[in-house]
């Protein structure tokens, strides 16, 4: 019996190649005299914002209760109203008894805020999520129409699939936003989600069709011979088996969808890609930001792969 071949030389080689590529990139940036400023990037994930707190009326500071972090000010206006405002203790600019005019600053409050990169990630996430769900539902319906025995229904589905698959997504997004968006008065987010959903729907339809057709004919015949109607057989017998078979290609489709969603930035939706572009205009850290954005997409898509992998294992019990 041949013993298992040693893997470590290949692992070593792999590591060496990856290291060489990294060194190559590093060397290339040396050539063009680029200064890496990675330290500029984190603040665009999350940052502390300072908001100045002005007094809303003419009056005086009646009382200040200072705690560790924040101070609670009790203000009294000239007309006798009182108001409580809290600011960070460190930034406190007034003391008890001070007379103030409307708009004078008392201090400021700092809070943690998501920067453009995380906000963009959020937008990318929910746009992909909703267009994925709608695309899946649409694809399921169109996929079923695609194999319908009705000539008209079948050809309408074919027409839809061919139209969508035959034109670039970027062009579809423009048409959706500038043409349909104007006609039906859609906002950019609805237009973006709509375009992505219709786009992925066409691909999901083909995947579903292939999945259904891969279920042996005998399954439908057995279900029908037991007295089930076609919809009953579809729901209980054919679709569960088809979905299981289509899980890997569907996962691929959703991963594509997440990546394709970067195209909605052209209609001024601030998704992860557009967020990245905005950060670049204020930092000029072009390389760092694009690498960071790429890494964030990668994390998102590999998380999705993991989930699908886990689902596949769950479904595999009957094999």
């Amino acid at each position: 019996m041949q013993s298992q071949k040693a893997l470590w030389p290949w692992k070593l080689l792999l590591a060496a190649i990856i290291l060489m590529m990294a060194a190559g990139i590093w060397g290339a940036t040396k050539q063009i005299d680029y200064t890496w400023r990675w330290q500029r990037v984190p603040q665009y994930f999350i940052y502390q914002s300072e908001t100045l707190q002005p007094i809303p009326f003419d009056g005086r500071v009646h009382k200040i209760v200072e705690a560790d972090k924040s101070a609670l000010l009790t203000l009294e206006s000239d007309t006798g109203e009182t108001l409580e405002i809290s600011v960070d203790t460190k930034t406190l600019e007034v003391s008890e008894g001070d007379e103030l005019f409307e708009g004078d600053y008392l201090g400021s409050i700092s809070e943690w805020r998501f920067g453009p990169l995380l906000q963009g990630l959020g937008v990318t996430l929910w746009i992909s999520f909703f267009s994925g769900i709608i695309g899946m539902a649409l694809g399921l319906v169109i996929g079923l129409c695609r194999i319908s025995s009705n000539y008209c229904v079948r050809h309408l589905a074919i027409l839809y699939v061919e139209l969508i698959r035959g034109t670039p997504l970027l062009v579809q997004i423009f048409i959706f936003y500038f043409f349909l968006g104007t006609v039906f008065d859609l906002n950019r987010h609805v237009a973006g989600i709509g375009a992505l959903a219709i786009f992925s729907g066409a691909y999901v339809a083909e995947i579903i069709r292939a999945g259904i057709q891969s279920v042996p004919r005998g399954q439908m015949e057995a279900a029908r011979s037991l007295g089930m109607t076609v919809p009953q057989a579809m729901k209980n017998i054919i679709l569960p088996q088809a979905i299981k078979r289509t899980l890997p290609p569907l996962a691929g489709q959703f991963i594509s969808l997440i990546k394709d969603s970067s195209l909605v930035s052209v209609i001024a939706i601030t998704d992860l890609t557009k967020g990245g572009r905005e950060v670049i205009t204020s930092t000029f850290a072009t390389f760092e930001v694009w690498f960071t954005v790429a890494a964030m997409y990668l994390i998102l898509t590999s998380l999705l792969s993991q989930i699908i992998f886990w689902m596949e294992r769950r479904f595999a019990v009957s094999d």
Binding site: E221, A222, S225, S318
Partner: peptide, 12 residues
Amino acid sequence: GMVFQQFNLFPH
């Protein structure tokens, strides 16, 4: 009732 050559049980 019908019984087929290929059984056609529901595998899932």
